[in-house]
Design a protein around this nucleic acid. Structure first.
Lengths: 189, 189
DNA sequence: TGCTAAACGGAACAACGTTCCATATATTCG
DNA sequence: CGAATATATGGAACGTTGTTCCGTTTAGCA
């Protein structure tokens, strides 16, 4: 129940929703790095209002995509439970993440950007997803389906990096990530 | 013998060299995306002069790093000749490229940037290195050391992407690339 | 219907890439 | 050894962005 404090004004709530909707649209068309003014214009608001509700771009990006990240995090344990093999669960989970990331123009770039402002975004994604990935890796290793040859953190960053630049007829992140996971199989004797 | 045409002015040559030297220093410290003014200041020249000699950032980056890219391209056939196994040659060649790329702050980012201006840079690297990589892959595949599971173009882009963000105690592009190459080994029967 | 705190809008500033042309200077030629 | 001239230079100026700030507006309430 968020009924604490001196009740936020209705127009503020309305405008925040408008910014969120505008950002979602603009992110989808222009990309996650779209100019602030473009988002403000689309929402029919001034840039000051936008900054009031979302002080940093990270705040805005997170507000737009948080649900999908959470869904992805939740999918990990579910897949591990529902699919027979932990390795298959890992593969499906990674595929799901790649499908999410590769379609968000510029998001993968942002995630690894060394710009100070994006550190929080980077941290959120990793904090949320690395533990899930670690569980999947551990289960697959315990089942003898993969070698414990990589840390979840490193794997997640690698997957994120491979998604940068999207996908075209000559480059498909999914293929390379399959190869990466193939590299985790036990060595031939 | 470049003694054709109306002989370029001596100061022009001198200034071009100065820009090149300044750019090399600034790229190494600030990164490949350093502000144009910073490079011009370091060279003791105006920005106009810099733009005259290097109209685009791609021109400047290429002038600074061309030698190393060429050296990397030349190393491919040499390694294939000198090392016993094509797969070992591939691995060593890839390592060499990664060592080059991972130490150039921001260069890997630039290579995959979808900004229109960097297309030429992207193209130069790929045109120069993909054929070399393709030869190494073909040789290793012919020797039965790897499966023909990836195109040279895709592999090179993947390697470039994995180098983005450099290397720290928790993320080492080299480890992931090793894993990627492991994924090319023939499947256990 | 006023009052007041909350919220808004957009002008203003800083940092950057890029262009342009008045000025300065190598080089050449008489 | 001077002009003459093509070449080269410098940096002001413009457009685009992110970000801040404050005068003005307005929702909620008494």
């Amino acid at each position: 129940m968020p009924t604490q404090g001196p009740a936020r004004r209705a127009d503020a709530q309305r405008n925040q929703d408008a910014v969120l909707a505008a950002a979602a649209e603009v992110f989808a068309t222009t990309g996650v790095n779209a100019p602030v003014r473009q988002i403000a214009d689309r929402a029919g608001l001034g840039v000051g209002t936008l900054y009031r509700h979302f002080p940093t771009r990270t705040d805005l990006v997170l507000a737009v995509y948080r649900h999908q990240v959470e869904a992805c995090a939740d999918a990990g344990p579910a897949l591990l439970r529902d699919l027979g093999s932990p390795a298959a669960a890992l593969r499906e989970w990674v595929d799901q993440f790649v499908r999410f990331l590769a379609t968000k123009h510029g998001l993968a770039d942002m995630l690894q950007s060394d710009a100070a402002g994006y550190h929080a975004l980077h941290a959120y994604f990793l904090d949320r997803l690395v533990p899930v990935c670690a569980d999947l890796l551990a289960a697959a290793a315990a089942a003898g389906e993969i070698r414990p040859a990589v840390e979840a953190y490193e794997l997640m960053r690698g997957i994120g990096n491979l998604c940068i630049g999207g996908r075209d007829e000559n480059y498909d992140p999914g293929r390379l990530i399959t190869l990466l996971l193939d590299g985790l199989r036990p060595l031939a004797h």
